[in-house]
Design a binder for these strands. Structure first.
Ligand SMILES: [Mn+2]
Ligand SMILES: [Mn+2]
Ligand SMILES: [Mn+2]
Ligand SMILES: [Mn+2]
Lengths: 218, 218
DNA sequence: TGGAACTTTTAGACTAAACTAAATCTCTCT
DNA sequence: AGAGAGATTTAGTTTAGTCTAAAAGTTCCA
């Protein structure tokens, strides 16, 4: 059985590693708000358990085994987030910290039953895909709004990582995941988009468009 | 913020203390499957935090403050148990260990929303009352089946503490909390009860009757 | 190519929560 | 009253997970 701390490290590794590249000790420390020396200690332990490939001074990557564990924690995190928003009526912005705790509850059966109860959701409330029991993630055909041209349409599926305040903004504007967007016009001068959502005409700054994820149907 | 361990000790104190009597170090150790010396350490810490009245060699009792914390953990435990049984379709016997973890999740808002989602239940799946936000418990008019006489009726509300196997038996016999019971006959010779539940005639041994709790309507 | 700057690891310390073994207290019974 | 049994506490150890400070390794540029 893995400790809460070990699980959080594995999850951090997963989020930080881009395409088979190894992760630096400092970046993990920064991500988890811990000191690099603490990270080194934990990496040694995780290496001992064969969850990571760790070589002094050379960086760390998840092993196959470690990646699977990470994906299972992420699965739990996202299913709980879905529960909190769909069933308990929390807002998008409120659920992360609670799910950060709930993801560590130990019970295979619990998470499978929760999955069924929620209707086997594919995406969490932030539009992130929910891995299945085996750790498989369904790839989405996601684009940023900024990549669309006039008259193209899409469905809002989420925002880029680390832009929680954009979520709040959307909330305030009464825009939800799943809403349809049509690009009415792109202002060349400053990259502003004029879009239609729920029959309302809205203006999005370039920055918003660079962070808003859509699923497009071609 | 209290640790998981502190919360489990306070809960143990609550369950062990009968009517203003203080609790022995050994009984806590026994209840929590820990060594008495470990318990002493924790009691000192809880006394420091004014959660308990502890005097060397003299036993321990919950302070008002400590009792309130204990009741809030118990509230969470029982609400989560209710969730697991009512919404996720767990059986009575499966939920305790999971709730033992869930009860430690930190979020006022979570538990209030869960309460609403469940329809503000009064009793958990084992028939135990769920304290409200302020720690108030509604007193039930509970009797043991063995206390009833011929022709009296009641509603099954639970079983006595520590008789989980009776729960399993009831499950197997397809008897649920909330089912009505009517005493048809009491056999004087061996204390056996002949009762009617769901239009079925059943025979309960004296031991069963000593452990089955009913709410009676007079 | 040799340092300075940065990154990473090591060494040592601390805290929480458990344990074992030994000391101390209390209670009861003769 | 005193002794023994049992309960409880104290003292010292352990493990996990964190930290600070110092040592060691790596990078990169003048
Ligand atoms: Mn977490
Ligand atoms: Mn999410
Ligand atoms: Mn617990
Ligand atoms: Mn219960």
């Amino acid at each position: 059985m893995n400790s809460q701390s070990e699980e959080d490290y594995l999850k951090a590794l997963y989020h930080l590693q881009t395409e088979s590249n190894s992760v630096s000790t400092n970046s993990i420390a920064n991500y988890l708000k811990m000191k690099p020396s603490s990270v080194t200690d934990m990496l040694k332990k995780l290496a001992e358990k064969n969850y990571v490939n760790y070589q002094k001074y050379k960086g760390t990557s998840l092993s196959k085994k470690g990646k699977l564990v990470a994906l299972q924690i992420i699965r739990k995190h996202r299913l709980w987030e879905t529960f909190l928003v769909e069933k308990l009526d929390f807002g998008w912005g409120q659920v992360h910290l609670i799910a950060e705790q709930l993801e560590h509850i130990k019970s295979e059966e619990l998470i499978e039953k929760l999955d069924v109860f929620l209707g086997n959701p594919k995406y969490d409330p932030h539009g992130d895909p929910i891995p299945n029991k085996k750790g498989r993630i369904e790839k989405m055909n996601q684009k940023l709004l900024v990549e669309l041209h006039q008259n193209q349409k899409g469905i809002i599926t989420g925002v880029k990582r680390g832009t929680a305040s954009l979520l709040s903004y959307l909330d305030k504007e009464n825009i939800k995941l799943g809403d349809s967007v049509k690009v009415l016009e792109v202002i060349e001068f400053d990259g502003t988009f004029i879009v239609e959502i729920n029959k309302r005409k809205l203006t999005f700054s370039e920055k918003i468009c660079q962070n808003l994820l859509l699923e497009t149907y071609d």
